[in-house]
Design a binder for these strands. Sequence first.
DNA 1: CTGAAAGCGCTTACAG
DNA 2: CTGAAAGCGCTTACAG
Lengths: 357, 357
Amino acid sequence: MLPVTRADANTRDNGRVTRPARPVSINDVADRASVSIATVSRVLNTPSKVAAGTAQRVQAAIADLGYRPNLFAKGLVTKRSRVIGISLPDLHGDFYSALMRGADEHAYDLGYHLLVMSNAHGDRVNPGTNGFAMDLIDGLVTIVTESSQTGIDALAELQMPVVVLGTDAPDGDISSISFDQEAGAAEATAHLLDTTPPERVMFVGGHRGNLDSDARLRAFMATLRAASHPGPLSEQIFHGEFTVEWGWNWAEQMLAEGRLRGAAVLAGNDEIAVGIVDAARDRGLSVPDDLRVVGFDDSRLCQLLRPTLSSVRVPIREAAARAIDTIVSRLDDPERGPDRITLTTSLAVRDSSRAGV
Amino acid sequence: MLPVTRADANTRDNGRVTRPARPVSINDVADRASVSIATVSRVLNTPSKVAAGTAQRVQAAIADLGYRPNLFAKGLVTKRSRVIGISLPDLHGDFYSALMRGADEHAYDLGYHLLVMSNAHGDRVNPGTNGFAMDLIDGLVTIVTESSQTGIDALAELQMPVVVLGTDAPDGDISSISFDQEAGAAEATAHLLDTTPPERVMFVGGHRGNLDSDARLRAFMATLRAASHPGPLSEQIFHGEFTVEWGWNWAEQMLAEGRLRGAAVLAGNDEIAVGIVDAARDRGLSVPDDLRVVGFDDSRLCQLLRPTLSSVRVPIREAAARAIDTIVSRLDDPERGPDRITLTTSLAVRDSSRAGV
DNA sequence: CTGAAAGCGCTTACAG
DNA sequence: CTGAAAGCGCTTACAG
C-alpha cells in the first residue's frame, strides 16, 4: 500500500472527523496511479480503451482515495446531469404521489435522479418551464391539465427530451404517455346504464377546459347517445372542481332539490365522488341503493372507504415508469423520435355502484 | 438596437424553431455590452460593485440574448447548486406526500429546488447517502426510521447541512426537526382512559425498533402507569407493520378471540387504525360503541372515513418547511450551528373514539 | 494504449 | 469601477 495522502483528510484524525481542505480530484487519482488524468477519465468512461493492468492500478487508486468525479465539472463538458425533472401541478395527493413513486423507482434503476417541482407557484400558465432548474436537468416529464398553446410552445423550445403525461401529445417533438380515458369513461357509463335509465345518469366533472374532464365527458355523452338517449340534457352534466369539498357541496344542493334519488353519477375524479357519497350519506340516502356513484383514477381511497368506491383505474405508476423510459431512450439515442403511447384504463366495480338487487 | 447575433440562433427562423448550435454564454453577453466577462459576472452576483450605467447595458444585453448562466460552470467554482436533496423511505402515501409539498413550497420561496430520492431501493441501512446525487445537492433532509449508528455516521460525514426529520437529533453536527410524539401519544392514551378501564386499553404499533413506534409506546406506558395501572400487561401491547393490511389481520384475529369488544386501541399510525376499524365493522362491531380507536399522523384519510378517525396530528408540512429553512440558514451562514427543533403534536378527537353515551 | 493540451463557462482575487 | 488572468475539475480529439 502506498501512503494515502489526500484520503487522510477525509478520514478520522484522533477519532474526530476533519473537514477535508479539498476533496479528492482526478489529479490525486492520476498521481497515485502514476498515469495522466486522461487515463483516469478513460477507465471511468471508456474502460475498453485502457490496458487491463493500468485500469486495475487506477481502480485501486480510486478506491483507496474514495474518489468521486465532480459532477459540475463533468456536466460542464458533457452537458449531462443524469437528473430528470418532473413538474407537476401539485405534489400532494394520491395521484401525484403514485406518479412520483413510479418515476423514482424506474429512474433509480436507470441511474437517474429526480428533480421535482410543483408548477403551482403562482404562474399556472407555464407547465414548469420556468426557473433555473431547467438548466440542471436532462429531460422533463410534466402534466398538462389545461389546453394552452403557449405552455406547449414553451415545452417544445426546451432543448431536451420532454414527455407530457396523462394527456394526448401535442404534435411536434414532444412525447406523450396518455390514457385511454374515453374507454374507461365509456365503460363506466355503460355500467351505470345497465340498471339506471339514461335520463338519470349524470356526469360531474372538473371545470370546463380541463383536458381530463373534457375527455371523460365526451365519452360519457357518446355512450349516452349510443344508448339512443336524446340528450344528454344540460341537467345531466355539471362542472366544478376536482375536490371533495366541491363534490360535497354540489351533491348537497342537488339532494336539497331532491334530484339525486335514483340517479347514477360518473364523477370526474375520486375526490368528487367521495364528496358526493359523503353528502348522500349525510342526507340518509343509501349508496348504491338510492344513488350510484363511480369515481375516476382508482386512488387508494377507493378501497378504504365504505361503501368501497367504484372507479376507473388509470395506470399512473406504469405511465410514470414509461415516461422515464422514453426520456432515457432519447437521451441514449438522439436520433430517436418522440414516443406516443396510450395506456389502457378499466373500470373497477365496487359497492358504490353495484346494481341494486 | 444593436444587431442581435447569438440570440438569432435561439429564436424563430422562417417560423420554425432552429436548434441553436451553441447556447448563449457569458462571452456573448460581454461582447454585446462591450465589457469583460468579469463585469457581466459582477452585475449578476454583486451588482453593487458595478457602475449603474454599465450595469444597465449589461442587463440589456442579457435580456436581448436571453442569457442564462450555465449552472455547471457556476457550480464548478461556487460548489453550490441551490438544490436540496430529500431522501425518504418511500415517496408514496399521505405522510410523505404532505412532507414533499411543504418542502417544495418553502424551497421554491427561497430559490431552491428539490431532488427527491427514495432510499428504499434495496439498501435500507443507509438513510440516503448513496449514489452520485449527494454530489449534486447543497443539503439533505432525510427521515430516519430505525436507530442505526452506521446510518447516522454516514449522514454526519456528508460535507453539507443535514437535517433529520421526525426523530430526535442524533448528536453531532446534524440538525433535527422532531415531533413531541410522546405528548400526543400521552394525550391520546389519557383520552382513551377517560371512559375505558386501563386494562382494556391497547397499543398496536409498528415493529419493535421503529423509532416512532417506540416513542409512542413509551408515552402510552407512562400514561397507563400514571393512571396507577399495574401493567401494562403484555396482552395490551402489540407490534406489527404500519399498514392497513396488517392492522386488519391483527384485529381479525383478536376479534375471533373475542378480545376487542369494549376495548380502546391507540394505533401506531393511521393505516393500522384504518385496518382495525375495517375489521371491526366486518365483524359487526360498532366503532366507537364497541371498540374505540385512535390513529396517529392525522392523515387526510381521517376525515374522509366513516366513522371519522381520531388521530394525533403531526405537523409534517410545517416540519418540512422548517427543515428547508434550517438548511438554507446554514448554507447562508456556515458559522451557524445545528438546529434542534421540536414541534407540538395534538389529539384530534373524532367519531372513532368518541366516548360512548 | 497513453499523454499533453485545449476547452467547457463561470467566479474572484489582484492590479490598476 | 473595470479587466486580464488564474483556476474550478473534468472530457476528448489529436499525436504518438
